[in-house]
Design a protein around this nucleic acid. Structure first.
Length: 483
RNA sequence: GGCCCUAUCGUCUAGCGGCUAGGACGCAUGGUUCUCAUCCAUGUAACACCGGUUCGAUUCCGGUUAGGGCUACCA
């Protein structure tokens, strides 16, 4: 049984790179009929953020990446658990890590260390001064072994005893064979002085206990992998299959960071990016099918995704292409569904009117939040400069004439025939019958009813506004020109 | 500095010894058009460099260069 997991540390938001890691884990598990688990790696008390776990869960749920086991949240936002291998919050598994750390002590694969932070700082400075790699010097390595975890008053940590003169070799599903010499590997701290495990211990113990078969994570973990392998060996456990994903990059090719734009999935959601657009875009950051397909639903990704074909090099996060996907998915959405999705960005007015507006503005939306601005024009005529009523080389006189001619015919249109197709024909007729140009009629009428230099066509706007409001706006425009 | 990873259009990528090096985003031009957006068409632009291996390298190997990651009692 194949099992993958997404194991974020709760920093307060879901990073866009984390979303891709979660997605690839999800896809790999699902396409193999396996299990996708969520585990929270909250072993650093100093970086604890209130509500971070809840927001992580919420965002992952919004993105549609359902996990088969892991922490869950009920309607009242209380944390619960799902699955047989919990708890899934590492902070609730402290005893387990201590127990396994003791096993390593017993087998001499780990040792107690009571070096003070001061000594370690000094050591590091000396090493750096001599241009040596900063690392633990093994000061406590061969001290008399202490059999129990009860320790004197002094704070202590537990360190991994890295074997000498060995080579750790593993086969990464994405990168192929990767080798490290143990002489390059530091005696990593496994249990911190506060009793919490470090990532390395907790991660290995949990992946084993939770029967994870495939570890799919970011490239930043590649150089810690030999430490993890040494731990698996010390415990006598079978190795999982490792896959290290390329990093997501800023436009300047540095690791994707907050300074150069939004990195939180929540930020994109708040701006009105659709989950399906985000998923589709992020899936293609590092992976591509052999054919030219670009549009993928989550289910299609499950079918097509191929972990072995994931790119090795980092991928720049390009908002442009995300926008394109988002526009695409917005256009695909039926109006009533679109209305639900952008409810938070809309004023509380007549639903039918909103539906009509959405139909008109749908093609013009880069993201859902923009609808808030677009909808204003339909609810109230914006204050505008009368000059924009005059199209290109037209004059004030021809513009007034055009508006009056249009007004005269529009006044005679029955309410039940006030639809955009009719309105378009009527305006076209005004143009031809008076030997005018489209610009002489359509432009001023459009500006009159929209108040904007750029907008949808006049008939579309008038259709939404209704006869009364449309005529009133045209009259206002005529008044303004006559002043 | 050390260790490790990486290298095809500006960006995401296809390619897995022989191709006019393909697609998408972006950009440009044209068409449709009263403006904007959409849509359609066309164009733009890449194998980092130097050596090998080979009849033949974008593709395999080595090096150079350049980028990136790690180098914590953070993950």
């Amino acid at each position: 049984m194949i099992k993958t997991r997404f194991a974020p540390s709760p920093t307060g938001y879901l990073h866009i790179g984390g979303l891709r890691t979660a997605l690839y884990n999800y896809l790999y598990a699902k396409q193999n009929g396996g299990v996708f688990a969520l585990r929270i790696e909250d072993t650093d008390q100093k970086r604890e953020v209130a509500g971070a776990v809840e927001s992580l869960i919420l965002t992952l749920q919004k993105m549609g990446l359902d996990w088969d086991e892991g922490p869950m949240m009920d309607k009242d936002l209380n944390l619960t658990e799902k699955g047989q291998n919990g708890p899934y919050l590492q902070s609730k598994r402290l005893k387990i890590y201590q127990e396994y750390a003791q096993k390593l002590i017993d087998s001499k694969n780990a040792y107690f260390c009571d070096c003070t932070p001061e000594r370690l700082d000094k050591l590091r400075q000396e090493q750096e001064a001599q241009k040596l790699a900063p690392r633990y010097d093994g000061h406590c390595r061969d001290k008399a072994p202490i059999s129990k975890l009860q320790f004197p008053d002094k704070p202590y940590v537990i360190r991994l005893r890295v074997p000498e003169n060995r080579e750790v070799v593993f086969n990464d599903l994405i990168r192929g064979e990767v080798k490290f010499k143990t002489s390059e590997i530091d005696d990593q701290v496994l249990i911190k002085s506060d009793g919490f495990p470090t990532y390395h211990l907790a991660n290995v113990v949990d992946d084993h206990l939770m029967a994870v078969t495939h570890v799919i994570r970011g490239e930043e973990w590649l150089s810690s992998t030999p430490k993890h392998i040494l731990l698996y060996e010390a415990f006598g456990w079978t190795l999982p299959q490792f896959s290290h994903l390329p990093l997501l990059l800023n436009p300047d090719k540095s690791k994707l960071s907050k300074r150069q734009g939004d990195v939180a999935v929540e930020d994109y959601l708040a701006k009105g990016y659709l989950p399906e657009a985000l998923i589709n875009y992020v899936a293609l950051l590092g992976w591509h099918p052999s054919d030219d397909q670009e549009i993928f639903s989550l289910n299609e990704l499950v079918k097509s995704f191929d972990l072995c074909k994931v790119q090795k090099a980092g991928a720049v996060f390009d908002v442009n292409k995300l926008n394109w996907f988002n526009c695409y998915y917005i256009k695909q959405l039926p109006e009533d569904e679109l209305l639900k999705r952008c409810a938070e960005f809309l004023p509380n007015v007549d639903k039918d009117k909103l539906l009509k507006i959405l139909k008109v503005e749908k093609d013009r939306l880069n993201n859902l939040s923009e609808i808030g601005e677009k909808v204003k024009m339909f609810l109230e005529l914006p204050d505008y400069d009368g000059k924009i009523l005059i199209f290109k080389k037209s004059t004030k006189e021809t513009t007034v004439t055009g508006l009056k001619l249009a007004l005269a015919v529009l006044e005679n249109v029955p309410e039940n025939e006030w639809q955009k197709e009719n309105l378009n024909q009527i305006l076209s007729k005004v143009v031809t019958e008076n030997s005018l140009t489209n610009g002489d009629v359509f432009w001023p009428v459009r500006v009159a009813v929209s108040g904007a230099e750029k907008s949808p066509s006049p008939e579309e706007i008038m259709d939404v506004l209704g006869k009364e409001e449309s005529l009133a706006r045209i009259k206002t425009a005529i008044d303004r020109l006559n002043k």
